[in-house]
Simulated assay, not measured.
Amino acid sequence: MPTSNWNFSPNIHWPLSGSVTQDISPSLVFRAKDAQVEIRVLREVASYGRQIGKLSEVLLKVVDALPKGKLDDATVETVGQLRVMAENIRRIKEDEKVLPSTEEEARAMVADLKRLYPGI
């Protein structure tokens, strides 16, 4: 009796189960108002990552120059998240492990380490 190589492997996409990553690929260029300008900017000036990196760098310097207490709590939290992202990008570039993104993730990581290494 012959065997079949048929493999049933359906892709099921439940509501809200799709990718949550942003498309930063060349296909994004074709959604731009002027694709040719977008292509030239990416080739001749800077990638999206470099553009966002420079904006983040400047924004963090501006925030650092503000007097303490000028930002509301929500903005302070968002700036903190941006700092963690910038630090994690630096760590990835230097082939280091990234930091937790939130305080909850940091606490969970510490708890895991304490379970693994009870003496610390």
Rank of each mutant, 00 (worst) to 15 (best):
A46I: 01
K61C: 09
E96W: 04
E105T: 03
S47R: 07
V84P: 02
K97P: 14
P67E: 08
P100L: 04
K97F: 06
D64K: 14
P26L: 11
P26K: 02
A106T: 06
P15N: 14
D64F: 01
P100H: 08
I92D: 12
F8I: 04
D73K: 13
E96C: 09
A65H: 03
N88S: 09
S56P: 00
S56D: 06
V79S: 01
P118G: 05
I12H: 08
V63P: 01
A106S: 07
E38Q: 15
I12A: 05
A111T: 10
L42V: 05
K33Q: 13
L60Y: 10
W14L: 15
N7V: 15
S47T: 15
S4A: 09
E96M: 15
F8P: 00
Q36H: 08
T21I: 06
I12L: 14
V62W: 06
E103C: 01
I52H: 05
R50C: 02
W14I: 01
P100M: 05
D73I: 00
K93V: 06
E44M: 02
Y117W: 06
K97G: 04
L60W: 05
V98E: 15
L60V: 06
R31D: 13
G69R: 07
S27E: 13
A35N: 03
A32L: 13
R107G: 00
S25E: 06
G119K: 07
E104R: 14
L60Q: 12
P10G: 06
E96H: 10
G18C: 03
S101D: 10
I12N: 10
Q22I: 13
I24K: 06
L116T: 01
R115F: 06
K54A: 11
H13T: 09
V76M: 12
Y48Q: 02
R90K: 14
E38Y: 05
P67R: 03
H13Y: 12
S101M: 15
V58Q: 12
E87G: 07
T78L: 15
T78D: 09
W14M: 08
R40K: 09
Q81H: 09
V79H: 05
K70V: 00
I12K: 10
N5L: 13
L116E: 11
R91Y: 06
E103P: 07
G80V: 02
A108I: 01
P26H: 07
E103N: 12
E44K: 00
N7F: 04
G18K: 05
R40W: 05
A106D: 07
D23V: 11
E57Y: 12
N5R: 10
V76H: 02
L16K: 14
M109S: 11
L42F: 06
V110F: 03
V37K: 09
T21G: 14
R107H: 07
G69K: 10
Q81N: 13
S27C: 09
I52D: 01
P15V: 01
K68H: 03
R40D: 05
V79Q: 07
N11E: 11
K97M: 10
I52A: 13
R115Q: 11
I39H: 03
P100V: 04
G80A: 07
R83S: 02
I12F: 11
L42W: 06
A86E: 14
D73F: 00
R50F: 02
D73T: 08
Q51V: 08
K97Q: 15
P100C: 05
S4F: 08
